[in-house]
Structures are given as C-alpha cells and as structure tokens.
Amino acid sequence: MALFPLFFAATLAASSTAAATPTPAAIGSASASPTAATAVLSPRGQEALLASPNRRLAANKRLVFDMYRIVLQAGDTARAHEFIAANYVQHNPNAAQGLAGLIEYVKSTRPVRPVLDHLEIPMIHIMAEGNFVTIAFARPETDSTGQHYVTTWFDMFRIERGRIAEHWDPMLRSDRKIDPNKQKLP
C-alpha cells in the first residue's frame, strides 16, 4: 500500500515539471493550420527552450540554435567552421558533403543578412537527447492550386566534439532549393 503514495507523488512531480517546461501552444487539428500566435515561439520563448538542467544538452541546443542564427539565417558562411565539423555528413540529397558542401549550399540559397539574437523563421520547438538536437519549424507553403497551408519542417543534428557532425531533414531530391528565411506565416 505504501507504493501508491510514492507513485502519486512521482506522478505529481513529473506533471508539475512538465507544466513548468516552456512549450508552444497546441498547433491544432490536422485540418486546421497553425497561426503565428499559436505555433511560433517568441524570442523569449526560444531562449527559454535552450535551458536544460543537463549542461551538455543545453550546450548542444545552443550550438544548433546559434548555427541557425548565424549561418543559416544570417548567411554568414565565414563563421560556419565555428559550428560545423570539417567532415560533416549531410543527408539532404541537394547539398554536398562536408563543411564546404554546407557553405556552398548556404551561399546558393540565401543572401547575407544581419545576425539577430533570435530566429525569425517560425520555430516551434528545439529538443536535445544524447548527442542529437532536433529543431522544428512551421513551414508555410502554397499548393499547385494556389491554396496556402502550413506544414512542419524539422532538422536533426548529431553533435560530436562540440561541432555539428551530421544533419538530417525531410528534403527530397525533387524539392527546389529554398531560402527558409523567406517562409513567413500569413
């Protein structure tokens, strides 16, 4: 009988910890499109998600977040080596391997912009587990009939020795190259 109060206390502690963790509002049903107000984290919300009681996980999230801000959002490829390993493994079929491949891809898809302290692309969440960091975004698109809709984009990174060593995303070989910074929510 003493196990029930222990189970109840552990469940209560877990639920109060989860409630204190900053998360974006519900996105909605499959038929509803998220809006900027319900899907996207504010700069303060983005910063809050970088925190973790585990220093290594917090450092991994910060590495990915800063790489996004500086290299992918601002297009500052001169600083890419600060974040990306020279032997970087790329699973996006439209980009070449290695640090040089990432630099070429970024240069071919976006202009250089000012570095901001937050992401302007509509970030939903960032999470870290072990040596992996996954970041999710709301991605506005237009279908072949001109109808606007919002889907989800993700990037997953493997961290090794303080650098991003590997990357996955859902890009298809048939997808056109895009500047994700132009993807704005209506």
Rank of each mutant, 00 (worst) to 15 (best):
Y88E: 14
Y88P: 08
V89T: 15
Q90F: 12
Q90L: 05
Q90N: 08
H91L: 11
A95P: 06
A95I: 07
A96I: 09
A100H: 05
A100E: 15
A100D: 12
G101V: 03
L102Q: 05
L102Y: 15
L102G: 10
L102W: 10
L102R: 14
Y105I: 02
V106P: 03
K107P: 05
K107R: 13
T109G: 12
R110G: 01
R110V: 00
R110Y: 13
R113D: 06
R113Q: 01
P114L: 08
P114K: 03
H118L: 09
L119F: 02
L119Q: 00
M123K: 01
M123I: 08
M123L: 10
I124C: 00
H125F: 05
H125E: 15
M127N: 07
A128C: 05
V133E: 09
T134H: 01
I135T: 10
I135Q: 02
I135M: 10
F137T: 01
F137P: 02
R139H: 09
R139K: 08
P140F: 06
P140L: 07
P140C: 05
P140T: 05
P140I: 04
E141H: 10
T142P: 00
D143C: 02
S144M: 13
T145W: 07
G146C: 09
Q147V: 13
Q147F: 11
Q147L: 08
Y149C: 01
V150Q: 08
T152C: 07
